[in-house]
């Protein structure tokens, strides 16, 4: 922070100013084409009705003896994320070994695996949900499949990093005791990686529960479906209770999952 060479510090200063100015220009440009009109039209009244809805949530919606209520919606959301995580936690294992550098001699193998995973990772789950809706119809199952496939991208990446970090000693020991390749995998590699795998799957579960709440926005089941209806009909007290439910569900899941992860590692 205190360079002795004044010319160096001056060039660093100039560079910082240029970067700063660049960011500001970028920011102004990014605002330029955004439409801000239409906000004033709604004005105070909408805000007040929203505030009113949020402060008076529709408690009656929490449980209804029949029909779609909050608890059923949240339960479905939970189920979607559990199953989606479960499916991807298994599907991603072959991908993980594919993308691990220490599992193949050729760099091209792991390199291509890593690229495939990157593409899966950046392919949005919402689009995946829409595609699966076309295949199996709208509903929770499409959501499960969407989360299951999308999560492979991140989970397999984390898994392969775990595999790349395994201690090679036990592998050597198993080989020297006459174990076959699969036995080496089973007794030297798996015991080292499984706890980490489970921990990552739980972490992904925390992410998936958030994703599962929005899948319903496109018709892939869960609490998102009643939420989008409530939003479209401007039923703010119902929006309020649904948001409250989501927040509580996510917090509970975070706590449980975090506790489990600490126990496993």
């Amino acid at each position: 922070m205190n360079p002795t060479d004044p010319s160096k510090s001056r060039s660093a200063l100039i560079r910082n100013w240029i970067v700063g100015a660049g960011i500001i220009v970028l920011f102004i440009w990014s605002l330029s084409s955004l439409q801000f009109d239409g906000i004033q039209e709604y004005g105070k009244q909408v805000m007040l009705s929203i505030w009113d809805g949020f402060t008076h949530p529709d408690w009656g919606y929490v449980y209804m003896s029949e029909g779609e209520d909050l608890l059923r919606g949240l339960l479905e959301t939970l189920i979607i994320s559990i199953l989606g995580t479960f499916i991807s936690a298994f599907l991603c294992i072959p991908f993980a070994f594919w993308a691990s550098q220490n599992m193949s001699r050729l760099g091209i193998v792991s390199g291509s695996g890593k690229f495939v995973l990157t593409v899966i990772r950046v392919f949005p789950e919402i689009i995946m949900a829409i595609l699966f809706i076309v295949a199996v119809g709208p509903g929770a199952f499409a959501g499960v499949l969407a989360l299951g496939v999308h999560s492979i991208g991140m989970l397999a990446k984390l898994y392969s990093e775990t595999i790349e970090a395994v201690d090679n000693g036990p592998r050597e020991a198993l080989v020297s005791s006459g174990a076959s390749k699969l036995q080496v995998l089973r007794f030297a590699v798996l015991p080292q990686v499984i706890p980490q795998f489970i921990s990552y799957a739980l972490y992904r579960f925390e992410i998936n529960i958030r994703s599962a709440t929005v899948l319903g926005l496109v018709g892939a089941g869960g609490i998102g479906t009643p939420l989008i209806f409530a939003l479209q009909t401007r039923n703010w007290s119902r929006v309020g209770i649904i948001l409250l439910g989501i927040v509580i569900l996510v917090i509970i899941i975070d706590l449980i999952s975090g506790w489990l992860r600490r126990r496993i590692i």
């Binding site: 955004l34 439409q35 239409g38 958030r210 926005l217 989008i228 939003l231 917090i251």
Partner: peptide
């Protein structure tokens, strides 16, 4: 706890459809 898309759905309902 609130995912980005959920924020978006809410703000669309509040401020109307659009990039804002």
């Amino acid at each position: 706890t609130v995912p980005d898309l959920l924020f978006a759905a809410i703000f669309v309902a509040v401020f109307g459809i659009g990039a804002f």
